[in-house]
Design a protein around this nucleic acid. Structure first.
Lengths: 401, 401
DNA sequence: CTTATTAAGTCAAATGTCTTGACTTATTAC
DNA sequence: GTAATAAGTCAAGACATTTGACTTAATAAG
């Protein structure tokens, strides 16, 4: 009867939003530029010296920044630079993959302090959940053994797992890890750890890692092509990870492409899964990673055809990404062995012509990123840190609190 | 000697940023929901009743909103809804295309009040600039004849023209309108009109129009596929137009695709330019638009093969867009005749499987948008209005002022 | 060696915007 | 007719930034 259409509106903001933003801007500036004096911060952020002083004082009290030795540079009172305190905050990152799960503890500047790994039982989430909770608990207690008061400075638990999320299990796609998708993992983890839990797909996590400590550091428009068991893209747009309407942006593994007379998903052609198949390797074999690294670094004939084919697909993907996003740079990273990523980059060149061939470029069109099985877990941990400390539109609004 | 690396940091914010944001949030809420009472606004924006009262009072004083008749709905004091005043602000939109230039005057709610068109002389920018300035001046004075005080409420001049921008003229691409790209158009227009001038490519303008008054109204994640003389995509991400690092995001006309054994740019296959070529039509022929509309609505054999081929490419483009962006909806619009767009949409279906086939969708995967030669000019005008009144991260920051 | 200049940083008061809690007004429900 | 409910106002308060004068500490110049 009564017309109860919900009213849609963006949230307003207030002093706290302002202050939160300014704090984040300071931290971001110190992360990008290294230690800066209050005067430098005031100029860079367009805030007044006084405001900067107040905020820095507060951040110092919170243990997030600390003063360094005064620097004399010409006339005038020497400046006192302030830098981020690595131990100012920590996050736990958790990667859930097909066969293994990895957890790390990471600090404010992205250093990995603790890492732990465990095999995932075949029983699926019901038995896997316990393994995961134990793994997280182990990392957490190890962290507590290394750093005093780490629990107080723990900002959250970031989880990375293969997407896409929120789909109906269509039954027969072996890449989807359906059982895990159905399981109320976030709730279980949240209840089991008492931490704030956030979820990303693995490509997004890799991009988050690259932005915090890798090739995308300080870059506001970058796309990370992530070659893992599947393939995905992590989108850094306007300095933030873009998630799309349902958190599935960048899940390009399902992109159909025509090649060799057939239409196949990209994931079936340029991913570790496809390489394993090409090599008839068992994904659960713990030596496979090293073996592939070896094959790739030697340019072994058994792997060359796959590299050529995958490189062709990636070359075209990069072309498309440059054309659609107009990014400053594209980063190729993966949980793949480093030698493989390097071989791929070598085989991809020269890049296809695109809008990215512009005069006055400062960054290379294509850069190697992290190629490390642990980079996804690192990125998972980078998620909560970014949410807590990076300047973001959402952080200003009242409904973010 | 002195290390003068520039310090990079995001801008801080202050009370004015807060206030500006809250004003924008109110306007946005009224635009999306229609007239709302102060109490409704307070609930929706999470601000207090008092704050909303203050801001509404100020907006009313500024002539941007006005009260409507009180509404009784159950117990309690009747509420007084406030709605946007269409005449609260105006903007001029200018489309510069290959053969014609169009200018419109648009109000706060996106109604076109004045429209004017002129042919562009072949002499290029040097002679064209005068034509354009005259056109804008004409629209402006007609607007002044219709509305009192329109000049005071003019927020800017939005320009839309085919991209990409900022490329070296590579010499032989007939689609690039190089001479116009080289010409300091923004400066000329800014100096010639005294208005704030902003530039978008035509697909971005179309998307801006769809967001203000079309299918993307109130939608925060949408991609507009724009079929015009060329083809492009306008990206609405997180409720804002995404421009990329160099303002060229969405310029997918240059995307290479394999089809029929050849690699060709999308633009050469699915664009009015390609249709003109297919039909051996002269783009400068003023009757061409109507003729194509007629052919398309009759399903004429002369146009069917082109429609089939273009639909196949668009189908695949939509698949890719859904896969990469995970939008709420894709909108097909264009400066193409409406019947052509409808034929294309009919021919595109059924869509390729993608991540967009999710349970619980509320919007269709593909929707028709505006198909009107004037929609780009409208979108051009929507640019300044959006910049002036929509909630945006950049609007909160100090360096936006 | 003294003084002027420059720049970093602090102090205290002022400003601007949102919040709080009590109050008024207007309507329906009982 | 009275109680309950909801919209909206009032005036004081809280909070973060700004302003402008001041202090501190260095180099440059004579």
């Amino acid at each position: 009867m009564n017309d109860v259409r919900p009213i849609r509106a963006k949230s307003g903001t207030n002093h706290e939003g302002t202050s939160a933003h300014n704090r984040r801007v300071m931290i971001d500036a110190l992360r990008i530029n290294g230690a800066l004096s209050r005067a430098d911060l005031a100029r860079a952020t367009r805030l007044t010296k006084q405001t900067v002083s107040n905020i820095i004082e507060e951040l110092e009290r919170d243990g997030l920044v600390s003063s360094q030795e005064a620097v004399r540079k010409g006339r005038g009172q020497p400046s006192t630079p302030y830098g981020l305190v690595p131990g100012g905050a920590f996050a736990i990152g958790l990667q859930i993959d097909r066969h293994v799960t990895r957890a790390v503890a990471v600090d404010l500047v992205g250093s990995v302090l603790v890492r732990a790994e465990a095999g995932l039982p075949t029983g699926g989430p019901s038995t896997g959940a316990k393994v995961i909770l134990d793994l997280v608990a182990g990392v957490r207690s190890k962290l507590a053994g290394i750093v005093q008061q780490s629990e107080k400075r723990l900002v959250g638990l970031g989880v990375a797992m293969p997407g896409p999320f929120g789909m109906d299990g269509s039954g027969d796609d072996p890449w989807m890890m359906e059982a895990w998708q159905q399981f109320p993992l976030m709730e279980t983890l949240s209840a089991g750890t008492g931490l704030d839990v956030g979820l990303q797909n693995d490509a997004a996590a890799a991009a988050t890692a690259e932005r915090m400590v890798g090739a995308a550091h300080g870059v506001d428009h970058a796309v990370c092509l992530f070659v893992g068991y599947g393939i995905g893209a992590g989108l850094i747009l306007n300095g933030e990870l873009y998630r799309g309407a349902n958190g599935n942006a960048g899940e390009i593994g399902m992109a159909l492409l025509f090649a060799g007379g057939k239409t196949t998903p990209l994931e079936h052609r340029a991913s570790l899964a496809s390489l394993y198949q090409h090599l008839s390797g068992d994904p659960a074999d713990p030596d496979l990673h090293a073996r592939i690294n070896d094959l790739a670094s030697r340019g072994d004939p058994s792997i060359e055809p796959w590299i050529e084919a995958a490189a062709a697909d990636l070359r075209w993907s990069i072309h498309l990404i440059e054309t659609i996003f107009d990014p400053q740079t594209v980063i190729l990273c993966g949980s793949a062995p480093e030698a493989l990523v390097n071989s791929l980059i070598a085989a991809i060149g020269p890049l296809l012509p695109s809008i990215a061939e512009r005069p006055g470029r400062t960054l290379p069109r294509l850069q190697p990123g992290m190629a490390d099985p642990w980079s996804v877990a690192l990125g998972a941990a980078a998620g909560p840190i970014s949410r807590a400390f990076d300047p973001r539109f959402a952080a200003i609004l009242k409904d973010s609190l």
